[in-house]
Design a binder for these strands. Structure first.
Lengths: 235, 235
DNA sequence: CAGTGGTCTAGACCACTGG
DNA sequence: CAGTGGTCTAGACCACTGC
């Protein structure tokens, strides 16, 4: 018995879905019927079915049964790391500046803070092969206990700063990748020509209620950035 | 009993990890000990632990026990769809051309085919608000049965074409996002200025052995593309 | 109402790990 | 060897669905 029974059953049912014997929203046999069909206990059948539910091939409706799902393969899993996405070797991140400012209109909107709230701004320069290739700026509403000493900040990540006042598991992040012609400040920093666009990776850090608790933008030279991912099976 | 017992136990253990009572690679109590601690059967404890394993907070070693995992929150899940990433409304994809060519050096490399193999090329134009904003080109080594009639191709997706000779579940995809100054052909198509870069989304379709069975590039106007994702907890 | 999935118990045997 | 997790059985009660 090299392969557990529940895996064999899962494989068998998966094939029925894969090879089109079952199509979207078709009902499956009931757990009890599958028990007799495969001559196993209910727990074993449930284990098999739970695998297929995890794989997004099935869903269950209490009191009704199991049904096959419409599949969509257009989800990609990306490993995103500020240094990982840069092209080149000898990549490093260097703290440029930490300051406390009054929020701009854009920050009032993104962080949903009042205009008199103070905002901690953390700026980093990212190097690849000795050249400046990206500029990273993070905004966090000031709270007591937030690290603002440069020495402390240099070695902790964005979520870690945020998480110092909440659990890291209650923090969600949204990310968006787009391109724009950057402001002059960034054109100079990244040594760009006048109308060169940059890749902007925008991060929104949210608490468990979906309220913003941090906002960041990474401006990256368009020739020095590459983001890679692999497909996963989604709903 | 609003919340099942196994969820309460999972929450309890999750908090111990979250709030730092347990740190990376610390051993957990054994299943048996947890059974007595919470006064439940082994299956209930196992259900709780399996949730935390799925959440990437724990891993188990047969014969030894459960251990807490080092967490890494830098994984993002992206929903990727050729039309979804375009900015604007009234988005549509239109078939431009289908042809069969001899592979270029680049295609021989990416598709690992011999120079005398024929390649099916499928070109689409993507519109947003009536304007051409992206150009999509897909390459698939010719095989008998591949749809090459324009009418047929217009309504099926890249993976579906590929999957006609294999199961869709045996197909993997890799994706990479980068930016480049495009060739002249694309500058004209997308109405770009001479040195405007484009966003390139490169797709590699692989079979279960990792061998290439398709290759595609989407060239998108840099102002008309935005890719969004959400964070997931990874290993 | 009978049938479904969701939860849960109290056992069992196995392969694996460590001392 | 005793202890661990991995697999599996044969029951049970519940809330929910459709008729």
């Amino acid at each position: 018995m090299a392969e557990p029974v529940y895996l064999k059953i899962a494989d068998d049912i998966r094939k029925q879905i894969t090879y089109g014997l079952l199509s979207a929203n078709d009902p499956l046999s009931s757990e009890k019927e599958l028990c007799s069909k495969y001559s196993v206990s209910r727990m074993t059948v449930r284990k098999s079915l739970s695998i297929l539910v995890d794989e997004n091939l099935l869903y269950s409706v209490p009191g009704k049964g199991y049904f096959t799902k419409k599949i969509n393969r257009d989800k990609y899993l990306f490993l995103f790391d500020e240094l990982d996405i840069l092209i080149g070797s000898n990549k490093e991140s260097q703290l440029m500046e930490v300051e406390i400012i009054k929020p701009t209109a854009e920050l009032i909107y993104h962080l949903r803070v009042s205009p008199d709230k103070r905002i901690v701004v953390i700026k980093h320069l990212l190097y690849s092969d000795g050249e400046i290739v990206a500029y990273d700026i993070k905004y966090i509403p000031y709270f007591t206990g937030i690290p603002i000493v440069e020495k402390e900040i240099n070695y902790i990540t964005f979520p870690e700063i945020i998480a110092s006042r909440t659990s890291i598991f209650d923090v969600h992040r949204k990310i968006a990748i787009s391109m724009e012609i950057p402001p002059d400040e960034i054109i100079n920093l990244l040594n760009l020509s006048l109308y060169d666009p940059v890749i902007i990776i925008q991060q929104h850090i949210l608490d468990q209620e979906g309220l913003p608790i941090g906002f960041g933008q990474l401006y990256c030279h368009y020739k020095k950035c590459r983001i890679e991912g692999i497909s996963v099976i989604g709903e």
